[in-house]
Design a protein around this nucleic acid. Structure first.
Lengths: 351, 351
DNA sequence: ACCTGTTCTGAAAGCGCATTCACCCTAGAG
DNA sequence: CTCTAGGGTGAATGCGCTTTCAGAACAGGT
């Protein structure tokens, strides 16, 4: 009762396996009558061509891969209720990339194979995915560089967000620094704010660091003191931690900042809530900004001024680069920086 | 410069291909020294085992598949700004399923292959996916029944949401009817509302219809008049259409309903906004409810009373069923109904 | 009827790996 | 020192399909 193969279909329809194959690969090359017979037999048998065999023979899979980080413990039973902050944020990000890649992939006739991953090695899901795709997109810091070295020798790999770990890879990032710089410039020049506080994240987060660099540049541009490090850092960059950060900044006393710039929207939203609880008005008493442009940022009150990240576009670009490289393996490696856009909303006083 | 194979690795490390294979499949069966030599050679060569060849030889792929509907036109350039209602809603739903499946799949050592689809046939992505996976989950109404018939003869298929189109398939749904029934009961009994209006969707939407059935049951339970059809239907079930529906209901004059029950959250949120514009207070003048429990429902003001759907859980259950069936192909087909839970919030007066 | 030019179809050779079977080597027992 | 057990390894086969390369079938033109 194993699955029917070309041989079964061939026998049943009285042709050779070559013809059966042609019916699927190049229907026009088979006479109508013959094709009908074959398809009929296939239907009766419940024949579905084996992707493995096809891939082996044609050396191509028609599948692109994506590896993204796994923020949540897969073994912890996901309690239906508790969709925590971190979870929401992570979901938004990787989900949008998935969506973007899926769309673009489909446009090019590819399916998308995805796997979250923490660890590498020959046993890992990463290796499995890598062996089954024509091209591979990797979110920064999800696959050990060591593994990437090996994989990228076998098939096109594009690196998403974060630093380009290996220079012969294609690479797509968003303009983190430029975005934050523009945002800070807006606060300084357009709103006349001078005392800005930046709340960053883990120093290991390339995005958060790049945003801080943009902040510094803006300070420098404006002739303000240039900080060496963020005024505050949080580990997970969640709403809860954003709230705590806001309170910490408030408690610093009289030199309370005129604006709080958070390295992402989640923290900023948490801060908005904390400030409301404390009776601090936004933007009258203090301006608040985020980064990412998550849906929530538009909904929350006051609506959050932020930098919109074209995350979905990131995924789409990844696919485009992969497709291009599959067409021309010799194209020199590309490094794209996708533009971001400032969303001026209520929380900075633009309401 | 084609990709290195077992043969290359074997030659370079001075062993046979069988040994190379063993190093990857069953490392313990190879002497330490030998294994090291092989891995070393593999690293130098940039060897990644071909999933196709492996799959062909072992008749298993280690991949599960998901097919979901494609709401947006993939050819329409996704304008970064315009994340329309429909788009958002769709994204939430399929994304959550993807996320759920991905997690569960990973727990079982599987990767996930996804593809949106409109059409079937031997050329389609569906066929491609089906040929490359060990098991297959399908969102209702995304794959022609005709194709499913064929595919399900070759590998386990589980149907998600919607009616079970083929009875020998496993099947998972959420308790749409029971949820809406409970919701309506709550409005009637706990809030003493009697004049309820139900806004449905396309009659082709099994979910919307099931919810309406639940509504009818609640009416019957309470001895209220039982409507034959929803008071109103919208085509796309978007915020915009929800807003319009709310206005239509208002314009009906004096017999304005005491509660508006929408078949999903999107419409309900749109309605809230329309009602606010019209100066109608919620819940004082009219109660509003949704269905789904999307994140937005919790954020909007007043917060929306709704029925939480365990969408992610749906994906996880799909994987569990597939895994079970892969272990025991003879298990009789299962039909699961996942419980939903009422989220009593401000928009019905529970604030 | 004969030959030429097209279609259409079949035979056969892999694609890269897993796996069985037989063999060899080493270690320990006799 | 010989014999036996096993662990370790290699040769060979097949997984189901694609893809030449030829040959068969058929159309058209003389």
């Amino acid at each position: 009762m194993s699955a029917p193969t070309v041989y079964d279909v061939a026998e049943r329809s009285g042709v050779s396996i070559a013809t059966v194959s042609r019916v699927y690969r190049n229907p026009a090359s088979v006479r109508d009558r013959t094709r009908e017979r074959v398809l009929e037999a296939a239907r009766e048998l419940g024949y579905v061509p084996s992707g493995n065999a096809r891939g082996l023979a044609s050396r191509t899979t028609g599948v692109l891969g994506l590896c993204f980080p796994d923020y949540a413990d897969p073994d912890a039973e996901a309690d239906a209720e508790a969709d925590s902050d971190a979870d929401d944020a992570a979901m938004l990000y990787s989900d949008q990339i998935i969506r973007g890649m899926e769309r673009a992939a489909r446009r090019h006739g590819y399916a998308l194979l995805i796997a979250a991953s923490l660890e590498g090695g020959p046993e890992s899901l990463v290796a499995k995915v890598a062996g089954r795709v024509d091209g591979f997109a990797v979110l920064a810091q999800t696959v050990p560089t060591r593994d990437l070295e090996v994989i990228s020798r076998r098939l096109p790999v594009v690196m998403l967000a974060g630093p380009r770990e290996i220079d012969h890879l294609d690479h797509v990032v968003v303009a983190n620094a430029a975005g934050e710089r523009e945002l800070a410039r807006h606060l300084i020049e357009d709103h006349g704010l001078r005392d800005l506080a930046f709340v960053g994240g883990d120093p290991e987060s390339p995005d958060a660091e790049a945003r801080f660099r943009g902040f510094r540049q803006a300070c420098q541009d404006a002739g303000l003191p240039v900080p060496d490090a963020p005024d505050l850092r949080t580990a997970m960059m969640t709403q809860a931690e954003g709230a705590r950060a806001a309170e910490t900044l408030l408690d610093r006393g009289p030199e309370r900042p005129a604006a709080m710039l958070f390295a992402n929207d989640q923290m900023a939203v948490g801060a908005l809530r904390a400030l409301e609880r404390r009776g601090v008005r936004v933007p009258e008493d203090v301006a608040v900004t985020g980064f990412d442009g998550i849906p929530l940022s538009r909904i929350v009150r006051p609506s959050l001024t932020t930098v919109r990240q074209p995350i979905r576009h990131l995924g789409e670009q990844a696919v485009e680069l992969l497709v291009q490289r599959l067409a021309d393996g010799n194209r020199p490696p590309v490094s794209l920086e996708l533009p971001v856009s400032l969303a001026r909303r209520a929380s900075c006083g633009c309401g």
